[in-house]
Every structure is written in C-alpha cells, then in structure tokens.
C-alpha cells in the first residue's frame, strides 16, 4: 500500500457511551483501518455492532473517546473553526431514512442550496441556483423539483435529494449509512446505479455501511465485517466472498440468502447478538461461534494479515499460521 493512496485512516478508534450505572458501553472498540482514495469500502454487520457509530466518527459527527481519524488531503480540523469547516466540506454523510434525513419544512431548492450558503460558495443567488440545478440533474431530478416540498416526493426521490445535498459541495469522501435499506428493490437498484455513476464521474470515495451482504459485496471494492464494535475480518471483496475465514463472516454469508445462489454452506448460528453493554470476555463472538475453543473465551484475538490485504481476527487462523 502506497501511503498517498490512503484518504482516511482510523487508528485505535474507541467510542464509549455512558451506560446505565455509569458503566461504559463500547460502541466501537479499538478499530484501525484505512480507506483508499476512490474506492468503496463496505462495512457489514448486524444491528448494534457499531457500524453507524463508526460512520459518524468518520465524518466527525461524534468525537472518539480515544484514537484518531486522520484525513490525508487536508489538515486535522480539531479546535480550528476554519479547518473544521473545510473538513465538513470534504466529508459528507447520507442517512438511511430519507423521510427523516430531510427537513420536512423546507423546499427542495432551499435544501440543496443551503450547503453553498454555509460555505460561501457562489457569487449570487443566480449562480447558486445554476449549481443546484446542475446537481439535481446529476441525480436524475429536473428543475421542477426546486419548489416542491419533501412530502410530495417518494422515498427514492427523497434519497436522490439527500444525495444531491451531500454532493453539491463536491466532497471527496461520502459515508453512506444504510442508504438503500429503506427503499423498495427496484428503487434500491436505481439508487445503487446512481451512486456508482456519481462515483465514476466525481471520483468519490465511499464508506458504504449496510447490514445487507449482497448489496455490500455488489458495490464494494473492499469489505470490513464488524461484530460488537470491532472488525473481525477485512479484505478485498473477492477474498472475503470466496475465501472468508472468520466463522462469523461465514455465518453471515450463509444467512444472507441470495435468490440466485444456492446456499453455500448451511451455517445456522444459535443465540442472539449480545448487547454491547454486556460484551463477553475474550473473543466477542465466542458465545455464538460454532468452533469456539478454550482460548477464545480467555483472550481476544487480534487482527492478523492472512494474505496480502486480507485481515482476520480469529484464533483459528492464528492457530493455523503458527
């Protein structure tokens, strides 16, 4: 990996929330990874695994408890208003539910124009309007939407608006947090196609967060699998899809039913996901793992590079290597 390829780098990121009786709840636990320029990094995991928290940490909507998020194309903006604003211009986030992520009391034109006003871009209203129209056109909406209210739009159209708002500042990095999960299949396909077109056109880098392994493996160049606040496996999509190593990844693939493939390996996990406030000792997955060993209960495995670019945190793998 060449250094200048990397766009965002997280190291030892920890985010804790105050839980009941002041016992901290670890939403994200000691996470290190980096995202390369121009790629789509897919993040999969089930509810409560901390993937959304991680997404918000990446765009500084949340401050990490410890660890750092470093951007390579501009300076760290902490404590400096001007630099922070520059950071806000480069990083955008798009949320899952297009019904709650758009202010219902503002017209579409106003909403799309707002980022330009915040960052003082465009000489006058005329120039800004031209920019708004051109970005709306990019996402497949025409000028007639300028004066419409969000309530007049369907879910797919709203998500297009949300994308337009995120992209009007011409950002380099976009976090897509479950952006297609709330949409119907046919509309989901439209939005996925749109995201890919825009990526090619504007050279965007995506962090694509989803619980749907099919969507993630379709869209991403690399995949990270999260379980209870930590990454358990990470690698190129090909590596993960064909040679996944971690028992949890295997179970996920087995569970995410594809209409076309027959089930690869019938792996049925027993039990439920533990709550992050009562994270088990040792490997977080050991309570549900089918190949749990004594070592797994005592010791949390660390990420090991199995083959170039393919990381996995499991004692089974380490047992094989050493």
């Amino acid at each position: 990996m060449r250094q200048h390829d990397i766009l965002v780098e997280c190291s030892q990121l920890v985010k804790e929330y105050k839980g009941t009786r002041n016992k901290p709840v670890r939403a994200v636990h000691d996470l290190s990874f980096s995202i390369r320029q121009g790629e789509t990094f897919g993040l999969v995991g089930e509810s409560g695994c901390g993937k959304s928290t991680l997404g918000q940490l990446m765009v500084r909507l949340l401050e990490p408890t410890s660890g750092t998020v470093r951007y390579t194309n501009f300076q760290d903006g902490r404590g400096n208003r001007k630099q922070e604003k520059a950071m806000r211009k480069e990083n955008q986030i798009i949320f899952q539910d297009p019904y709650s992520s758009i202010n219902p009391r503002k017209r579409i034109g106003w909403l799309v124009e707002e980022p330009l006003i915040i960052h003082g871009i465009g000489k006058d209203a005329q120039e800004r309007k031209a920019m708004v129209c051109s970005i709306l056109k990019e996402v497949g909406l025409d000028d007639s939407y300028l004066d419409r209210w969000p309530r007049e739009l369907s879910g797919g159209q709203r998500q297009r608006v949300a994308i337009a708002i995120a992209l009007i500042l011409n950002p380099s990095f976009v976090v897509c947090d479950e952006v297609v999960s709330a949409l119907d299949v046919s509309v989901q396909a439209q939005v996925l196609n749109l995201l890919q077109e825009l990526q090619e056109k504007f050279g965007l880098t995506y962090l694509f967060i989803s619980h749907n392994l099919q969507v993630v493996s379709y869209l991403s160049d690399r995949i990270g699998v999260m379980y209870l606040g930590g990454l358990v496996e990470m690698g190129d999509t090909e590596q993960i899809y064909h040679h996944c190593l971690h028992p949890y990844t295997k179970a996920l693939f087995s569970a995410s039913v594809d209409a076309f493939d027959s089930v690869k390996e019938d792996l049925l996990l027993s039990g439920d996901i533990p709550s992050p406030s009562r994270s088990p000792s040792g490997c977080p997955f050991h309570t549900r793992c089918i190949s749990c060993m004594k070592r797994c209960i005592e010791e949390n495995p660390s990420m090991v590079e199995v083959s170039p670019g393919h990381f996995c945190a499991c004692h089974l793998i380490q047992g094989m290597n050493t």
């Binding site: 299949v185 046919s186 989901q188 396909a189 996925l192 099919q214 969507v215 493996s217 379709y218 869209l219 999509t237 899809y241 594809d258 209409a259 076309f260 493939d261």
Partner: peptide
C-alpha cells in the same frame, strides 16, 4: 434489481 456479488 437485486444486487449480488455476481453482478459486480
């Protein structure tokens, strides 16, 4: 419309 690895 269903995305999958096969349609990458």
């Amino acid at each position: 419309s269903i995305p999958s690895y096969g349609k990458k």
